[in-house]
Design a protein around this nucleic acid. Sequence first.
RNA 1: GGGCUUGUAGCUCAGGUGGUUAGAGCGCUACACUGAUAAUGUAGAGGUCCGUGGUUCGAGUCCACGCAGGCCCA
Length: 1101
Amino acid sequence: MKKYNEYKNPNYAQIGEQMLQFWKENGIFEKSVDTREGQPSFTFYEGPPSANGTPGIHHVMARTVKDIFCRYKTQKGFQVKRKGGWDTHGLPVELQVEKELGITKEDIGKKISVEEYNQKCREAVMKFKDEWDDLTEKMGYWVDLDNPYITFETDYIETLWSLLKRLYDKDLLYKGYTIQPYSPAAGTGLSSHELNQPGTYQDVKDTSMTAMFKVEGTENDFFLAWTTTPWTLPANNGLAVGAGIEYVKVKTFNQYTFEPINVILAKDRVSSYFNDKAKDIKLEDYKAGDKLIPFEVLESFKGRELAGKSYEQLMPYIPLEKPGCTVVVGDFVTTEDGTGIVHISKTFGADDYRVSVMNDMPGVFVKDEEGKDVPIVDKQGKYVKEITDFAGMYVKNEYYSDEERPEKSLDVLISIKLKEENRAFKVEKYEHSYPHCWRTDKPILYYPLDSWFIKTTAYKEQLVALNKTINWKPASTGEGRFGNWLENLVDWNLSRSRYWGTPLPIWVSEDKKEQKCIGSLAELKAEVEKSIAAGFMTESIGEDFDLHRPYVDDVYLVSETGQKMTREADLIDVWFDSGAMPYAQWHYPFENKEIFESNFPADFIAEGVDQTRGWFFTLHALAVMLEDKVAFKNVIANGLVLDKNGNKMSKRLGNAINPFETISNFGPDATRWYMISNANPWDNLKFNIEGVGEVQRRFFGTLQNTYAFFALYANLDGFTFEDAEIPLNERPESDRWILSRLNSLIKEVDQAYNDYEPTRASRAIMDFVTDEVSNWYVRLNRKRFWKGDYDQGKKAAYQTLYTCLVSVAKLAAPVAPFYMDRLYQDLNAVSGKENFESVHLSNFPEANEAFINKDLEAQMILAQTISSLTHSIRKKEKIKVRQPLTKVMVPVLDEKTKQYIEAVQDLIMTEVNVKAVEYIDDASGILVKKVKPNFRTLGKKFGSQMKLVAAAIGQWTKAEIAEIEKNGSINISLEGEPASLLLEDVEISSEDIPGWSVASEGKVTVALDISITDELRAEGIARDFVNRIQNLRKDMGLDVQDKINIQVAKNEALINDALTANATYVCEETQALSLTIVDSLSEAQSVEIDEWTLEVKIAVG
RNA sequence: GGGCUUGUAGCUCAGGUGGUUAGAGCGCUACACUGAUAAUGUAGAGGUCCGUGGUUCGAGUCCACGCAGGCCCA
């Protein structure tokens, strides 16, 4: 006879290890994919992690989310292939290598060759791969680790090149510029990382100026705009205002020229520009040279009213065409400093560039020797010759050598010039924090630098439209964060000035007029052959050619006109690498065409919300541009994992949770279950290790106890579920109830998983197991498992509990894959009901509607409420549950409630140890009803008269309640006006019952008869006695089935009579053959019952 | 500075379309149960629902403005 496994002290971490071993030995993961061959596929894309750092607890979170839905869909019959991947390129890898080698970017090509450097990167990037693989296994994340895609491999890069070429052929790849931090002294752009080095931001004093821009077509109206970089003023091409900001026009005088002027600035900034002491001075009293300058506000308007106004170019060295020199709205405008009007220079500011592009405003450019547009400042930081007055001057005095540095900086000279021209309103020194180049310690410029772009804006409409078809969890990330990002889309800047990454496959001729974009290794080889023929190359490249730098940089091609072509030095954004994984993981289009096509787009992806503009965007952008499809249909953007105080985890602060330790202490299942059930994945999780322990105790502990209870008795009775299932209508009330609940649960959990709501699913399962199965079903039915013969009723109990347990194992398997597989196998090994070797190969339960009985579920809730109320009365009256009582009384307001309670009254009687349930209705005469307004319905009818109605109902007596119950309606008077109320407009419940001990909750009221007759008292004593004997039996180490003989020393008559009267009951409960009261007893044990001490002797019979 | 997001008991979280006594678990206190026992049950205490205004007969819920935390972007 097969037995259910019984465990003394289950060790959840050990269960994890054992199951992992079992999965490995039996290839369960592979089978979970292979056995679904031919079934519809469910496609999942793995967002590649970078293995150059150790995995953290947040990775367990992210991967649990991914794993849950893949396992769920497998159980639902889909084939779910999961290819792992590694993200290997990018700045973090470079930085790590530089740190290890103690070098900087400067040293690359000098102290270390590019070749060696890249070799180091290649090694560093897989440094922690073993640790990652270890975690992947231990946490139970099923993903194919044997054939992962790796972004630095030649096949992968080749796909990237082919995609770039497709974009190039669609005219979506172009060279433009972006405004970036640039160090003229070092002649190089700076990454944001370099800008975030300590010491780069320094406090400096600059000449700041509030310049006057003359409104076109006016006599002397000026816009005031403030700048800390007056040298950018000749490049001014617009002014920006805040749409909602209030502006005023002020009549006053220029403090340098004393001329009368009207100036426009933000209302909030007036007090900063005008001296309050001058506010009472009359304009006509002003004399040239007065210190206090009078002012008068003429009118005011909102920023959006100013938009579109034109002004005269301030420093027209390079005349600008319209719509240059107009006022536009900018979201970056504030009234915290300056005038609330911002000077815009398309070539020297990122915001400026963006707002100019959005409004089609031309920037100020000059032509270089090649006829190309360049800004008015050259790469050394000097003005170009077109700025005649100051040609050749450095725009920052710091750029001059100490000997050459002029006394007056360019900013000062420009200020003087504008003062003289009546175009400067205020000039002053201003101290602020400004970034400096970490190499040269000189200030940086924001400067237009060449970059390659993907013209994503050309597909904006499709991107937006297709995004609306994606199911985002949470929806707000899709609509808000992602949607807004698409609405404000700019072209994708692909260029990165780095060494370790995918090189841009574009070669340019010496005169820059010819370009070639290479889309495959074969194409490159062919081009190289041509180049060899032209004499630019000496040898061919092989099949194993490394597409990385520096090798590709040594490849020169030949143009159509015979010119030598050099590769554009840029690498591409690593986000392109990961966004291209749907194609590149299969080396598509060079191989695996069918696999790619049947696995595109993804049904589901999940990653951190911080990837919104990263991976989520690049996947979407490439799919829309290349395939005119979405890349994923469902996406979960999960939140961060914070420490228990809500702080970000970091190794530096020492608050990081080690995932390996957590798993080995609590096991993988509790860890996963805690993370999923505690908060929705898209909310930040405050990770508290105590919570994991709680989940282990509360959920897994309860489930394990329930299983252990089942196994104990099922083994004794030899229950193997070999008989046919007992028909539902032959099972008792509580079985039908728990099965109804189970089937409702199956529906609910299936729906939740299907909606990508794992938290809802796990909470529902947890509540079912702890509250309904364990605390209600098992507790109420305990006796059925251990008392009496192995009959139909007992079998029903086993079958019912078995079904609940095995179903829970399947429902919860996606979240707790190890434990649930153990549970499933332990059950199935004995019953042999299914042929699956693992729960993960089994099918998700299907709800049977015929088992769902909502009436029964409602009845059971009533039973629970009534029991709970009765317990609370006992508690209040200090009557222990072991003391039987005569009856509880329940007022019933309608026949249906009565029927509901009658259906479960046996349960109630057992649970609260009373002998009867009595129903009190109107006819009894003791029921007193009370009435409450139903605000929900009344509100709709009476609205503002609500208070009157409520007051009127408050006055009702028995008569009115009887009337409305009888007629279904009643007429009342509201301030003389007649009104009619329906029965549904009030809620009728029962009042406390005079003379009874009563408790109520909602509409349910319970009265308990607390009188204890002698007979009841005797029964109570007998039950206490049984309890004491049971304890003694256990102390003596007797088995459940051992028989005994009990002797009790003669005591007070009350005790003696109680035992005599209930001797049969006592014997039956305690497996006693006899109960005798004797005059005296030797070697007896003492037990206490209330105030009495009894001498007892137990002999094994 | 902008977009998105969170704020409910000591802690972690629930609270369709507004409805008058705001819930659960843990923790705490007390009690009970004892053939699930390193388990279990019941009860109790514990809340300016972040603040301020507004809409409404009625706001935890809707609106506006703030405050605090988080993420992304500038």
